[in-house]
Computed example of a mutant assay.
Amino acid sequence: MTAPAQTAAESTLEQLDGLVREPFSRRGFVMTGLISGFTLATTVVHGQTITTDSKGLVAGEVKIPTADGDLPGYRAMPDGAGPFPIVLVIEEIFGVHEYIKDICRRFAKLGYCAVAPELYARLGDLSKMTDVQAIVRDVISKAPDATVLSDLDASAKWAAADSKGDAARLGVTGFCRGGRAVWLYAAHNPQVKAAVAWYGPLGGSRTDIQPKTAADVVGDLKAPVLGLYGGADTGIPVADVEKQRDAAKAAGKTVEIVIFPDTPHGFHADYRPSYRKAQAEDGWARALAWFKRYGVA
């Protein structure tokens, strides 16, 4: 019997300290453009927010063709001839807002073509939603995994065809819910060279449209995965992270797990109080080294 979506929503909400939780939900409109600035779902923008300029880059909002229309997204790449290694950047649950855009620019400054598709554009307008409970219940829990994977495929194809990207050097990274998608995508697309999952949920409920957890696909991984987790993450038990590592090893998969002690969920999110500078910088350096080691960079 399919578990109710609210169970999965409650699990996600446990990881969202410092964010707005309003008593009433607000269903948004279908998105045709990206969020300007930061998500409205955060109670405060953290003082250590990183800002990366676009000097020497081609950066901005794009439209990514999919089977049922154009998906809004953000693309940043060097202003040069290419071809550039491609990295797909998968959002948290808050949309492709300034934090995700800045991550794309950080990659572009290092020579990548970074593309962040707005994977929830069909379900709600995250640029207007302030209620985290509504975002999880009305958008995240209703996003079919098959569509997410298909949109990532379309984004990789578009990056190679229209953005001077090198399809032979494809990487993927994602944060929170996007970290979960990293595990799924690494098991889905054999063209992925390397993947980096930042505190991506490993368990949770299974539904008809989200039939497998990240733990379920560990034996199907087609690319090396680096998992970056916090030892004080209240929503992802360390025991589950260690179990994922052990399952990957037993299956003969290339997986490296790093657990930062006394570190909360969302430690890379520099716009939120959960940000931990030292761990974020360490994780970023590890991510770049991972991409280099396995042929993305």
Results as ranks from 00 to 15, higher is better:
residue 11 S to Q: 13
residue 27 R to I: 10
residue 173 T to A: 13
residue 262 D to W: 02
residue 207 T to S: 09
residue 22 E to C: 04
residue 102 D to K: 05
residue 106 R to I: 09
residue 116 A to W: 11
residue 26 R to G: 12
residue 191 Q to T: 10
residue 15 Q to Y: 02
residue 137 R to I: 01
residue 280 A to H: 03
residue 25 S to C: 12
residue 290 W to M: 09
residue 8 A to M: 14
residue 186 A to F: 05
residue 62 V to L: 09
residue 162 D to E: 15
residue 294 Y to V: 04
residue 113 C to V: 15
residue 242 E to Y: 00
residue 8 A to N: 12
residue 169 R to V: 08
residue 188 H to P: 03
residue 138 D to P: 10
residue 125 D to E: 14
residue 81 A to H: 11
residue 221 L to V: 00
residue 108 A to I: 04
residue 294 Y to L: 08
residue 287 A to C: 15
residue 84 F to V: 06
residue 23 P to R: 01
residue 197 A to H: 06
residue 208 D to E: 12
residue 213 T to E: 01
residue 105 R to C: 07
residue 52 T to P: 07
residue 162 D to H: 09
residue 96 V to F: 04
residue 265 H to C: 02
residue 32 T to R: 15
residue 189 N to W: 00
residue 261 P to E: 05
residue 128 K to W: 06
residue 11 S to P: 03
residue 297 A to P: 09
residue 72 P to G: 05
residue 140 I to N: 08
residue 269 A to Q: 11
residue 254 T to M: 07
residue 99 Y to C: 07
residue 90 I to M: 09
residue 136 V to D: 07
residue 27 R to L: 14
residue 133 Q to G: 15
residue 128 K to V: 14
residue 31 M to L: 13
residue 49 T to G: 13
residue 154 A to I: 02
residue 230 G to M: 01
residue 236 I to L: 06
residue 103 I to K: 15
residue 107 F to Y: 14
residue 106 R to G: 12
residue 269 A to F: 03
residue 8 A to I: 12
residue 163 S to P: 04
residue 232 A to S: 12
residue 218 V to G: 03
residue 126 L to K: 14
residue 149 L to F: 09
residue 173 T to H: 09
residue 184 L to D: 05
residue 178 G to M: 02
residue 258 V to R: 14
residue 165 G to C: 04
residue 133 Q to I: 11
residue 37 G to L: 10
residue 95 G to I: 06
residue 64 I to G: 06
residue 178 G to T: 06
residue 75 R to F: 08
residue 23 P to K: 01
residue 53 D to W: 06
residue 61 E to A: 14
residue 122 R to I: 10
residue 248 A to N: 06
residue 266 G to R: 03
residue 291 F to W: 09
residue 155 S to V: 01
residue 30 V to L: 13
residue 151 D to N: 11
residue 173 T to R: 08
residue 132 V to Y: 00
residue 236 I to W: 04
residue 66 T to A: 13
residue 171 G to I: 03
residue 232 A to F: 03
residue 279 Q to G: 01
residue 133 Q to S: 15
residue 63 K to P: 05
residue 261 P to Q: 03
residue 247 A to F: 00
residue 114 A to T: 08
residue 42 T to G: 13
residue 215 A to K: 00
residue 265 H to I: 01
residue 167 A to L: 11
residue 233 D to K: 00
residue 62 V to W: 06
residue 194 A to I: 09
residue 145 D to V: 01
residue 2 T to G: 07
residue 145 D to C: 01
residue 225 V to Q: 08
residue 258 V to A: 10
residue 38 F to H: 15
residue 246 D to L: 10
residue 257 I to N: 09
residue 174 G to V: 10
residue 233 D to P: 04
residue 219 G to C: 00
residue 82 G to C: 05
residue 52 T to W: 02
residue 106 R to P: 12
residue 270 D to T: 01
residue 166 D to Q: 11
